[in-house]
Write a protein that binds this DNA or RNA. Structure first.
Lengths: 335, 335
DNA sequence: CTGAAAGCGCTTACAG
DNA sequence: CTGAAAGCGCTTACAG
């Protein structure tokens, strides 16, 4: 068996008070006399007692646990997000039960286990919520925030970078630089991030008279970006500018250009999306659209907390604008 | 209030059985008749019932939760480790309560909260355990595994790469290449990883007649490695070969060399430690010592599980040898 | 200011 | 094969 667990009853016996009083000493009940509280806490300290959060959860109907379901840890953006979430939640007195999913189907399998632990709220990072699970979660009244995804009909709140407008900003940047032969290196097709970034980009190109844009799949990965750029740059009609669906693919594209002896930005402009730390490394100096990570996390936590306090609130979608970070991978104005 | 919670009692009432029977249907009790079980599960399904893991934990004295305390998520090695841990633990039926710590002092503050949730075991990644907390955890009989750290007196088990011998292998590699002017770019001084890698490196250099080795602090970061390499390469007596305490610092060193026009490996050899995915990127092609990540994780989980099953087992230290991965950043044999 | 008691939602001997 | 009952370790009305 495990080491002895000290309970409130033992503390009560030793301190000569009732078990209720021990509980009150730890819950900060105002009514308790100073002297009683001190005596209880002193005895508790000596015995190494700490209230059992599991027992507390059962009676209070609150676990103070937030479930986080995350995937794609291979993109450096997400470890940063995960760390920021856990840090922020801890500071607010919450715990994090972590689940990682390889694919979206896995999320459905994971969710029942998350729910079995009676999480007070749920954050889903870079994974989506099936309508079946959305319904299940609603029925239980558990607030959900999707991070970097949205599922409008689900009732779940969502926080995302304004990817649509981000794509438009990149289009303007590349057109202003005088480029006309453009390509988009796409991410996964089933993601709103990829779809919205591309749609904004293509829409703005069309508005400014560019109807044609090549496309290759980059899969949101370094290897995918590398291979996609290789295909484009070795084709008959190589583009002068690449917009990559995320930074990690853009780094792959830059390395492909380097390998082929294509100079950036003289012969080729490259733009990413995210602004991961590596984008600023001197080997890359990637021009990119920065996702407002801190704001997105703060908004997610705020929406979640509001809905835990007030389960009647409807889900909302929040889109936070990104910022263009101009480094060295887009050629200067004009030509 | 939250959505209605369905309990085993409601299922029992609707199914015309006792609450005990509902419990047995879900715990897979062999004695239950096929027909009763099916009826109960069917009613449960209709009602959307799932056993409350918190209530179960209270009575079974097992939460099936492993606490993971992690820090340094800025080193890409650790998100990979974290993901692998959660994945492996899930497959074995465990949940992960995640805590992130900025510094080692924070771990001490975090631990009481982890313990309040009655975790069945504890994994501490890249953070250390104070002797006070080690004692506390022992008293409670909670098995602990330190990953990539060890604290011999603590009673905690630890799994680490064989950093000492890794350092020796790097020394041999660089000496075999004919280098004599060497430098070590150190990581954090309070870590056994940094200490052991350096000690192995210096010991082996001394054994082979090289008594002198420059040192600079690289802080285990890209920026630190970059700055350290800058200082070394711009000094009066620049080294011909750098051993960096981890890969991310080595990438910084490579970019510093690139910036100064120092050619790698012609003018400078660079070796890292970890083998993070970026080390294989074509922009770097870093020669490095690969940590046996999968084996280290499997060993950690195994040690933890054994000690959860059998709390009497003493803590053990396991050192798993790394593998030299020769890419393009060390000059060829001879000179 | 403090205590006795009920109850959160389960599991599991103990009976039958 | 199934049920009644005790109990895990707390919180919190309800009394006094």
């Amino acid at each position: 068996m495990r080491g002895k667990r000290v309970t409130s009853l033992e503390v009560a016996l030793k301190a000569g008070v009732s078990q209720s009083t021990v509980s009150r000493a730890f819950s900060g009940d105002e009514r308790l006399s100073q002297s009683t509280r001190e005596r209880v806490l002193e005895v508790a300290r000596k015995l190494g007692y700490r209230p059992n959060a599991i027992a507390r959860s059962l009676i209070t109907q609150r676990t103070q646990i937030i479930g986080i379901v995350a995937s794609y840890m291979t993109n450096p953006f997400f470890p940063l997000v995960l760390q920021a979430f856990t840090q922020t939640l801890h500071e607010l007195g919450w715990r994090v039960l972590l689940f990682t999913a390889g694919t979206n189907e896995d999320v459905d399998d994971l969710l029942p286990e998350v729910l079995a632990y009676q999480v007070d709220g749920l954050i889903i990072v870079t994974a989506t919520l099936s309508s079946r699970m959305a319904k299940e979660v609603r029925r239980r009244g558990i607030p959900v925030v999707l991070f970097n995804r949205y599922v409008p009909e689900s009732g779940a709140s969502a926080v995302s970078c304004d990817n649509l407008n981000g794509g438009r900003m990149v289009a303007d940047l590349l057109l202003d630089a005088g480029h006309t032969r453009l390509a988009y290196i796409a991410g996964r097709e089933d993601t709103s991030t990829n779809q919205d970034r591309r749609r904004g980009f293509l829409e703005r190109l069309a508005e400014r008279g560019i109807e044609h844009c090549q496309q290759e799949h980059g899969h949101f990965t370094y290897e995918g970006g590398f291979a996609a750029a290789m295909r484009l740059l070795e084709s008959h009609n190589p583009p002068e500018a690449l917009f990559c669906a995320n930074d990690i693919a853009a780094l792959g594209a830059l390395d492909a250009a380097r390998k082929l002896g294509v100079r950036v930005p003289q012969d080729l402009s490259v733009v990413g999306f995210d602004d991961i730390p590596m984008a600023a490394w001197s080997a890359y100096n990637l021009t990119t659209l920065r996702q407002p990570r801190e704001q997105m996390i703060a908004a997610s936590v705020r929406l979640l907390m509001e809905r835990i306090e007030n389960p009647g609130l409807p889900g909302v979608l929040e889109f936070i604008p990104g910022t263009l970070i101009e480094r060295q991978t887009v050629r200067a104005h004009g030509r």
